[in-house]
Amino acid sequence: MAATALVMIDFQAGFHHPAWGARNNPGAEAQALRLAGHARAQGWPLHMVRHLSTTLGSPLHPESGGLAFLAGFAPQDGETLHEKSVNSAFIGTGLEADLRAQGVTHLVICGLTTPHCVSTTCRMAANLGFDVTLAHDACAAVAANADTSWQPGLAAPDPEAIHAAAISHLHGEFVTARSCAEIMGAAR
């Protein structure tokens, strides 16, 4: 029975669509692939999550062509695919049941985008009683996440500020934020 599992969220072609605008951390995918290699070497279960938007025109809608996993992110034999249409990887999927059946108590989470599906999944994982480590350098935020229409005259933050704020809100309350190097160097 595994104590730790890696949950990789929404590393899909649709997140490279120009509609998302600028993003931070262009190395997030490379870091996530290194982390996946480490997890496989450690024998951790890997759970790949894919977003299927219900919004027509979304780069993540099934008709958009953006559902494909980025190179290297498709589940390998024995790894589980969970498909969702909301922000949390736990809603409408078998993720929690699969983790419990595998004896997982600790999650390492990474993915796209930091303030949405990553944050929501981290919060829910912690609320479900999992110990959560967020691989902050294997995540990224995009400019399209910054809707300031609710406050006229408010400047939209850049993706780096969005990412940093999301991580700051999670760290200490829901997760322990660590770099991939720290995670891979820690014995677990």
Rank of each mutant, 00 (worst) to 15 (best):
D10Q: 09
F11H: 14
A13P: 11
G14P: 08
F15Y: 14
H16I: 00
H17P: 02
H17R: 00
P18Q: 03
P18I: 02
A19T: 06
W20Y: 10
G21I: 00
A22M: 01
A22P: 00
A22H: 05
N24R: 01
P26C: 06
G27Q: 15
G27F: 14
A28V: 07
A30P: 12
Q31K: 15
Q31R: 15
A32W: 08
A32H: 06
A32F: 05
L33F: 09
L33M: 09
R34Q: 12
R34D: 10
A36F: 02
A36N: 01
A36T: 00
G37A: 07
G37I: 06
A39N: 03
A41T: 12
A41E: 14
A41C: 11
A41H: 12
G43D: 06
G43Y: 09
G43V: 04
W44E: 00
P45A: 04
P45E: 02
M48T: 10
M48H: 15
M48Q: 15
V49C: 05
V49M: 04
V49Y: 04
V49P: 08
R50L: 09
H51I: 04
L52I: 10
L52E: 14
S53N: 06
S53G: 05
T54A: 14
T55Q: 14
T55G: 09
P59A: 06
P59Q: 10
L60V: 08
H61I: 06
H61L: 08
P62R: 12
P62V: 11
P62K: 12
L67Q: 04
A68Q: 13
A68N: 11
F69S: 09
F69L: 08
L70Y: 09
A71D: 15
A71V: 13
A74F: 13
A74M: 10
P75W: 07
P75Q: 07
Q76T: 08
Q76M: 13
D77M: 12
D77E: 14
G78L: 07
E79F: 06
E79H: 05
E79A: 00
T80N: 08
L81Y: 07
L81A: 05
H82Q: 01
H82D: 02
K84N: 02
K84H: 08
S85Y: 15
S85G: 14
N87A: 15
S88T: 15
S88C: 13
F90H: 07
F90T: 07
I91M: 12
I91P: 07
T93S: 01
G94W: 06
L95E: 04
L95Q: 04
A97Y: 05
A97I: 04
D98Y: 02
D98E: 11
R100I: 11
R100A: 13
A101G: 13
A101N: 15
V104N: 11
H106E: 05
H106A: 05
L107I: 10
L107W: 08
L107G: 05
L107K: 03
L107H: 10
V108R: 02
C110R: 01
C110G: 05
C110T: 00
